Simulated assay, not measured.
Amino acid sequence: MAVYFSKSMMAFFPDSMRASYEKNGCWPEDAVLIEEALYRRVALQRPAEYTLVVNPDSGLPDLADSPRPSQAHCWNGAAWEASPAAEADYQRANVERELDRRRAAADAAITPLEDAVELGMATADELAALKAWKRCRVLLTRVPQQAGYPMAVDWPPAP
Rank of each mutant, 00 (worst) to 15 (best):
V3P: 10
Y4S: 07
F5D: 12
S6I: 06
S6W: 07
K7F: 00
S8V: 15
S8P: 04
M9N: 07
M9R: 14
M9G: 05
M10H: 01
A11T: 02
A11Q: 09
A11Y: 00
F12S: 13
P14V: 13
D15H: 04
R18G: 06
R18P: 14
S20Y: 08
S20E: 14
S20P: 11
E22W: 01
K23L: 15
N24H: 08
C26L: 13
L33R: 03
L33S: 13
E35S: 15
E35F: 11
E36G: 05
L38W: 06
L38V: 04
Y39C: 03
R40D: 11
R40Q: 12
R40L: 02
R41L: 12
Q45N: 15
R46Q: 03
P47K: 03
P47T: 09
A48P: 15
E49N: 14
E49V: 11
Y50F: 08
L52F: 00
V54R: 14
V54Y: 03
V54D: 12
N55K: 06
P56M: 06
D57L: 15
S58T: 15
G59F: 04
G59W: 05
L60I: 08
P61S: 01
P61H: 12
P61M: 12
D62Y: 01
D62C: 08
L63W: 01
S66C: 14
Q71W: 00
A72P: 13
C74L: 13
W75P: 09
N76T: 15
G77M: 01
A79C: 07
A82G: 09
S83R: 02
P84C: 05
A85C: 07
A86E: 13
D89F: 06
Q91P: 06
Q91N: 07
Q91K: 07
R92L: 08
R92Q: 05
N94P: 01
N94V: 02
V95K: 14
V95G: 03
E96S: 06
R97E: 14
R97P: 04
R97Q: 09
E98V: 11
L99S: 00
D100I: 08
R101T: 02
R101N: 06
R102C: 05
R102H: 06
R102N: 12
R103Q: 12
A104C: 00
I110V: 08
I110P: 08
T111A: 12
D115R: 11
D115K: 07
D115H: 07
A116R: 11
A116D: 10
V117C: 10
E118N: 15
E118A: 12
E118I: 02
L119N: 05
G120M: 03
A122Y: 01
A122L: 10
D125W: 01
A128H: 07
A129V: 03
A129E: 15
L130M: 02
K134E: 15
R135M: 10
R135L: 04
C136N: 13
R137F: 00
L139N: 02
L140R: 03
L140E: 09
T141Q: 13
R142L: 07
R142Y: 01
Q145V: 00
Q146D: 11
Q146F: 00
A147S: 12
A147P: 11
G148E: 10
G148P: 12
G148Y: 10
M151Q: 09
V153C: 00
D154I: 08
D154Y: 00
D154R: 05
D154L: 06
W155M: 04
P156F: 02
P157C: 09
P159H: 04
